[in-house]
């Protein structure tokens, strides 16, 4: 059950500074602080270079911050080593990327099974679990198709199935509709919205307002700082559907 008051993750003064080989330092995040509650649907918006992808990567344990603190489920991220972070990504997080990032030569089934394999789910149980996830994104008729032969929309739905197959706490979506036409994009957003309704916490990065409006809350970043953090008054897509 969703407990709206429970804080899932908390960041305080989060900083990320990239330094190139010449020693030049480029700050991507310059002290960002907010909380995300369990089950929340958050969109992070901002122009390119605003630090939104960097923020998502750190929140998703794909990267480490240069400063500040990040507490996930009451534990500081920096107390984990890289392999522990990998295991947490596997069990707690699901990722949907703009470029889909599927294993091109592998079938839909093999792609969706991937997180299960790293979770050491017994071989015999992997197929039924993956099948359920593939069903959920409406690709039962494409199970053994090579993923490179699918359309863009279908590819992203495979990625969604892969993201939800381990039943994660949080699903991170990094511009999930960026490479799709508006029709498939809309479909993908509907699936993401459905995941939210099933209780998953969604953290979405987008620069499209219509996509962001699926969210309950929008954080706008600019130059590595929070510009605004607002509840969405008119979740018209979602409301409209209901």
């Amino acid at each position: 059950m969703i407990n709206n008051s429970e804080i899932l993750l908390r960041i305080r003064g989060l900083e990320k500074i990239y330094s190139d080989d010449g020693g030049t330092e480029t700050p991507a995040l310059r002290g960002v602080s907010f909380d995300i509650r369990k089950g929340e649907f958050l969109a992070i918006m901002g122009p390119s270079g605003s630090g939104k992808s960097t923020l998502l990567h750190i929140l998703g344990f794909l990267d480490r911050p240069s400063g500040g603190s990040y507490i996930f489920e009451n534990k500081e991220m920096n107390s984990y080593n890289n392999d522990e972070l990998a295991q947490l990504r596997n069990k707690k997080f699901g990722f949907i990327f703009q470029a889909f990032n599927l294993l091109a030569r592998s079938s839909v089934m093999e792609n969706v099974k991937l997180p299960l394999a790293y979770a050491d789910v017994p071989e015999a149980k992997q197929t039924p679990i993956a099948m359920k996830a593939i069903d959920a994104v409406g690709l039962s008729h494409r199970v053994y198709h090579e993923s490179s032969k699918l359309s863009g929309g279908e590819k992203q739905r495979v990625a969604i199935a892969r993201a939800l197959v381990n039943d994660p706490e949080v699903i991170f979506a990094d511009e999930p509709t960026g490479n799709l036409d508006s029709k498939s994009g809309g479909q993908v957003m509907e699936f993401i919205d459905k995941l939210h309704n099933q209780g998953h916490t969604i953290i979405l990065i987008t620069h499209e307002t219509y996509t962001a409006e699926y969210a309950e809350r929008i954080i706008k970043l600019k130059d590595g700082l929070i510009e605004s953090d607002e509840k969405v008054s008119s979740r018209h897509h979602a409301e409209f559907k209901k």
């Binding site: 990998a86 295991q87 990504r89 069990k91 294993l103 790293y118 892969r162 381990n166």
Partner: peptide, 8 residues
């Protein structure tokens, strides 16, 4: 990708 989905 493998690392993102949990490969150590």
């Amino acid at each position: 990708l493998r690392k993102a989905v949990g490969a150590t």
